[in-house]
Design a protein around this nucleic acid. Structure first.
Length: 486
DNA sequence: GCATGATGC
DNA sequence: AGCATCATGC
């Protein structure tokens, strides 16, 4: 039993995706009670809270306590406090997340600054080239101005449009890049600018005196049960090659001779699709440790030796199924026509028949009950599943298909985090769990504990789900930085 | 405050 | 195409 309750998490678990879980909104909705606003007590933020007169500050604060208790009582009454996923996962996880946030992640400031200098050079030189190619000064960071320069001044062939004008997305510019170097240069300029502002300057700004960065995990925002991470978002640090990949080389151990260890669930969402659908072909591939994208490629392109491109297409189809595939989406993703996209999807279903059955059942079930759920019982309500508008209906279908898979993954890694935190504590280990990136856990490890961690973490993570036809697989790598732990 | 476009799984 | 956050422009 947790020693605490959280009304925000209770509301979230009842119905994730609902906007407005703040106390004042809940008080208004549940009790038709209008709480004193922060603006009211501080006279529209003219006063600092410590300057607010004690009497009104006391009433304002007491209201929070009172309403929180009111909501808690309602939760007890309606049975929310008994929801299994709340007690078994969300509430115990709170303490784990708190400790990860406080522990922080060690980042080498000088490494990051060095990358910043490289980027600065690239950005400066690209800017000069682009301005020269354009024949006039303009703000490359403004999509509006980029559109005007490319399509009006230079007269390049126009592609897609957005609500506000010409689209100048990476897709569109990529099409133009072979014929017009300026297009590629703008793509590169954006890429390096993004790295500089978000991952170099943004990260440096958030480093504390010990070179630690303390993210904030939010466990009540996603519709599927995933965590999110802000200030900084440690869940979208670049992992690609080139300069972008170097950002991760700044993520290093805080310990003398320490290492960074990363444990990630291999192909977890496709494995979950196999387990949840019970499809023999999909399960068989994992049982025999066959490359699943290659296997799908053999189904889609029978009789030929599979090329890299065919495997790439198959990989997109495999992921597409998890995202609730549509011919439209797949064709756009691969840059192929709808007809071919549909053929690929049909081939997939022909060869993994129980996947189709499972997906059909998921939607039918949702239409009847109004919600979908994960293997562990986490729910997402989807009222639009019965909408008469086909665009809205299709979107709901995709959400219904994706949530049980993405959400089960989220449940599994959350349980693993609770168990690993317990294991570290029970054995008084000094190594720290420092990050979660959806299917990956990252640890800051002292050298003496490397082997026991590697062994135990793998065992814990692979055995979260019992009685399944194929095992979950965890890969563990380590090195002097997060980049090397891959 | 919304739109766009970048990053991740 | 499912789920996110951040920087920037307007």
């Amino acid at each position: 039993m947790a020693k605490y309750y959280d009304t925000l998490l209770g509301e979230y678990i009842k119905n994730p995706g609902v906007r407005g879980l703040s106390l004042d909104k809940l008080a208004l909705k549940n009790d038709n009670y209008e709480m004193i606003s922060y603006d009211q007590v501080t006279n529209k933020k003219k006063l600092n809270f410590k300057e607010v007169e004690l009497d009104s500050a006391a009433i304002y604060s007491a209201e929070d306590v009172y309403i929180t208790n009111q909501i808690f009582l309602q939760h007890k009454e309606e049975g929310t406090t008994d929801i299994k996923i709340l007690n078994d996962i969300e509430l115990p996880l709170l303490e784990v997340l708190m400790n990860m946030e406080l522990t922080g992640v060690h980042i080498n400031r000088d490494t990051l600054k060095g990358i910043g200098l490289l980027l600065e050079n690239e950005i400066d030189s690209l800017e000069k080239t682009i301005i020269h190619e354009a024949g006039e000064e303009f703000n490359i960071k403004s999509p509006k101005q980029v559109g005007e320069v490319l399509f009006e001044k230079l007269g390049l062939p126009k592609g897609k449009k957005t609500k506000t004008g010409y689209s100048v997305s990476a897709d569109v510019l990529g099409e133009l890049s072979h014929e017009f170097p300026i297009a590629q240069n703008i793509v590169d300029y954006r890429h390096y600018s993004k790295l500089q502002s978000t991952y170099v300057e943004g990260l440096l700004d958030l480093l504390d005196d010990n070179e630690l960065v303390h993210t904030s995990y939010n466990s009540a925002v996603t519709t599927t049960g995933r965590l999110s991470s802000t200030k900084p978002n440690l869940q979208n640090i670049p992992s690609s090659h080139g300069i972008a990949g170097e950002i991760r080389s700044a993520f290093v151990s805080r310990f003398e001779n320490g290492i960074i260890m990363a444990a990630d669930y291999s192909q977890v969402e496709v494995r979950l699709l196999a387990i949840m659908s019970g499809d023999e072909n999909l399960l068989g591939a994992f049982k025999n440790e066959i490359d699943i994208h290659h296997k799908t490629a053999e189904f889609i392109f029978p009789g030929s030796t599979i090329t890299n491109n065919e495997r790439k297409i198959a990989k997109a189809v495999n992921f597409g199924v998890i995202y609730g595939i549509s011919g439209f989406g797949l064709s756009k993703m691969l840059g192929i026509n709808m007809k071919d996209a549909k053929i690929y999807i049909d081939k997939f279903y022909e060869n993994y028949p129980k996947v189709r059955e499972y997906l059909d059942n998921t939607i039918k079930n949702c239409e009847e009950k109004g919600y979908v759920e994960t293997m562990f019982g986490r729910r997402r309500y989807l009222p639009s599943i019965n909408d008469r508008n086909s665009i809205i209906k299709s979107a709901a279908n995709r959400e219904a298909i994706n949530m049980p898979i993405q959400g089960t993954n989220a449940d599994i890694i959350k349980i693993a985090m609770i168990k690993i935190a317990e294991f570290l504590k029970r054995n008084s280990l000094k190594s720290k769990m420092i990050m979660q990136v959806h299917d990956e856990l990252v640890f800051d490890v002292i050298p003496e504990e490397k082997e026991i961690l590697k062994t135990e973490i793998k065992i814990i993570m692979e055995n979260i789900v019992q009685d399944i036809p194929i095992p979950l697989k965890v890969d563990i790598e380590s090195g002097l930085s997060w980049k090397e732990a891959k």
